[in-house]
Design a protein around this nucleic acid. Structure first.
Length: 448
DNA sequence: GTAGGGTTATTA
DNA sequence: TAATAACCCTAC
C-alpha cells in the first residue's frame, strides 16, 4: 500500500484547490519517510502551501518559512536553487518588511521591530548556514532598509514601492517552474497512458475517432510499449520516475502546472466521455485485477480525505460510481474535494442533479464524477460549547496570545472588519477562534 | 457574516 | 463593586 499512499497523496496535493485542507495535514497523516519519492511529496506539499497562500493573497513571514523549507528539501534532492526561488525570497522578505512601513515615520517602532525580526534574526541565521537564498539582491534590500532607518526620504521611497506585485510574480514563477520539474503525478501519468493506449487500440482496430488529435495517437502508439514497461516498473516500486517525467515534458503533458489543471486532463476526461458508452458495451478493457485495484484506490482515497477533513461522512457508498465502471483512475479527486468539503446540508438527490448539470442524458456520468458522500451537517460549530453539544456550557476561556493580537491587527489593516477573511487569512493561528471571537477581541482592543 | 447587547469569570 | 476579557445570544 505504500506506493498507493504516495500516489494518492501526490495526486491530491497537486490537484486540490481548497485551502481549507492543509497539505501538511495530509503529509503528517501518511507519515512519510525520507526517500526520494517522499521528498518529492514534501516538495509538493510546500508548493501547495505556497499556492494556497497566494490564492488567499497572503504574503507573510509564513511564506518565508515555506521558501526556506523548500530550499532544504531541494538540497536533500541535490537540486540547484532556481533564480526564481532566490528572487521570490528576496522580494517576499522585502514585502514582509514593507508591511510594517505603513506609519509615516520609521521611528514608529514597528519598522525597527520588523528589521530586527526578519533581517537580523531570520536572515542572520540564513547567512550563518551559508544558504543560497542569501543573494546580492537580498543583501541590497538589507542595506536599503537599514539606510531607511536614518534617511526619511529613502524610507518614503521604499514605502511607496509596489514590492508585493514583484514578489507575487516571482512566487508564481517559482511555482510554475517547480511544478514543471516535478512533472505529471504518477496517477495522471498512468491515466494518460491508459487513455492513449485505448485510443491507439481503437485506431488500429479501424474504430477511428477523427475527433481526437491524430498526432497524439501516433505519439502514444510509438511510446506504448515503453509506457507499459514504465507503468509496470512504477507499480513494482515507484522507482525511477524521472524518465517518465522527461517524456511527459516532451509531449507537453508533463509541463502541466496544477494551477492550470482541468485543461489538459480535462481534455482527456472529455475524450473519455465520448468513449464511455462504447467502452462499456464493447470494450471491457480492464481485467478483474485492474478493477480491484481501481476500487481499492478510490476507497483508500476517500479514507484519506476523511482523515484530513472529518466533515466527509464515513459509511456512504463511495463505490457506487465505481461499480458501474471501474476503469477510471483519471484525475477526479479534485472534484471529490471541492464538493465533498462544502459542508452543505443537502440531500443526495440534489447532489446527483447537480453532478449531471444541465445535460439530461448525464454526460457527467457518475463514472467520471464519482458520487460523493454528503457531509454530515454539524449542529454546532466545534468551537462552540467547548466542543460539547450540550447547551449552556461555555467554552473554556482562552486568553489571546500576543501573536494572535498582532495577527488580528494586521488582518484588520489588510481586510478591514471582515472577520471571516481575517480568520481565513491565518487559519492556523486562528484555528481555535471564531469570527465572533475576532470581532469581540477587536472590540476589546479599540475599547468599544 | 456581522454588530451589538448580555453573561460569566477574574482581578484589583 | 467596578473594570476587564472572553464568550454567548440574537437580530439583521
Amino acid at each position: 500500500m505504500e506506493v498507493i499512499d504516495q500516489w494518492v497523496a501526490e495526486f491530491i496535493l497537486r490537484r486540490q484547490h481548497n485551502p481549507r485542507v492543509a497539505p501538511t495535514n495530509l503529509i503528517s497523516a501518511l507519515q512519510l519517510g525520507d526517500s526520494s519519492d517522499c521528498i518529492k511529496l514534501k516538495v509538493s506539499s510546500v508548493l501547495r502551501d505556497i499556492s494556497n497562500s497566494l490564492i488567499r493573497g497572503t504574503i507573510d513571514e509564513g511564506m518565508l518559512d515555506l521558501l526556506e523549507i523548500l530550499e532544504k528539501l531541494l538540497l536533500q534532492q541535490h537540486s540547484l536553487l532556481m533564480e526564481s526561488h532566490k528572487s521570490a525570497y528576496s522580494w517576499t522578505a522585502a514585502e514582509c518588511t514593507l508591511r510594517f512601513m505603513w506609519p509615516m515615520f520609521a521611528s514608529d517602532g514597528l519598522f525597527t521591530e520588523a528589521l530586527e525580526r526578519i533581517w537580523t534574526k531570520r536572515i542572520g541565521i540564513l547567512k550563518e548556514s551559508g544558504s543560497d537564498l542569501v543573494t546580492h539582491d537580498l543583501l541590497k534590500w538589507e542595506t536599503d532598509f537599514n539606510k531607511a532607518l536614518e534617511e526619511h526620504e529613502l524610507y518614503q521611497r521604499i514605502r511607496e514601492t509596489n514590492i508585493r506585485y514583484t514578489a507575487i510574480s516571482f512566487l508564481t514563477q517559482l511555482l510554475k517552474e517547480q511544478w514543471a520539474l516535478l512533472g505529471s503525478s504518477s496517477l495522471e501519468s498512468v491515466a494518460q497512458r491508459r487513455f492513449l493506449k485505448r485510443k491507439a487500440v481503437n485506431v488500429e482496430g479501424d474504430v477511428v475517432d477523427n475527433r481526437g488529435d491524430q498526432s497524439a495517437v501516433d505519439e502514444s502508439t510509438r511510446g506504448l510499449e515503453s509506457d507499459i514497461v514504465d507503468v509496470i516498473n512504477e507499480q513494482r516500486g515507484g522507482e525511477d520516475r524521472n524518465g517518465n517525467n522527461r517524456e511527459n515534458a516532451n509531449d507537453g503533458e508533463g509541463m502541466e502546472c496544477p494551477e492550470n489543471d482541468g485543461i489538459d486532463n480535462g481534455n482527456v476526461a472529455d475524450e473519455e466521455h465520448t468513449m464511455g458508452a462504447q467502452e462499456q458495451e464493447h470494450e471491457p478493457s480492464l481485467d478483474k485485477g485492474d478493477k480491484t485495484v481501481a476500487r481499492e484506490l478510490k476507497d483508500y482515497l476517500l479514507e484519506i480525505q476523511r482523515h484530513i477533513d472529518p466533515s466527509i461522512r464515513r459509511g456512504e457508498e463511495p463505490n457506487t460510481a465505481i461499480n458501474h465502471s471501474v476503469d477510471d483512475v483519471t484525475p477526479q479527486p479534485t472534484r471529490v474535494n471541492r464538493t465533498g468539503t462544502g459542508g452543505q446540508d443537502h440531500n443526495e438527490a440534489t447532489d446527483n442533479v447537480n453532478e449531471k448539470g444541465s445535460d439530461s442524458k448525464g454526460t457527467w456520468s457518475s463514472r467520471i464524477r464519482p458520487r460523493l458522500p454528503t457531509p454530515v451537517p454539524l449542529n454546532v460549530s466545534p468551537l462552540k460549547k467547548g466542543g460539547l453539544a450540550k447547551p449552556h456550557v461555555r467554552r473554556p476561556k482562552k486568553f489571546w496570545t500576543p501573536e494572535e493580537v498582532e495577527a488580528l491587527r494586521e488582518g484588520v489593516k489588510e481586510y478591514g472588519k471582515s472577520w471571516k477573511d481575517i480568520k481565513n487569512g491565518n487559519p492556523a493561528l486562528f484555528a481555535e477562534r471564531t469570527e465572533v471571537d475576532l470581532k469581540d477581541k477587536w472590540r476589546n482592543l479599540v475599547g468599544g
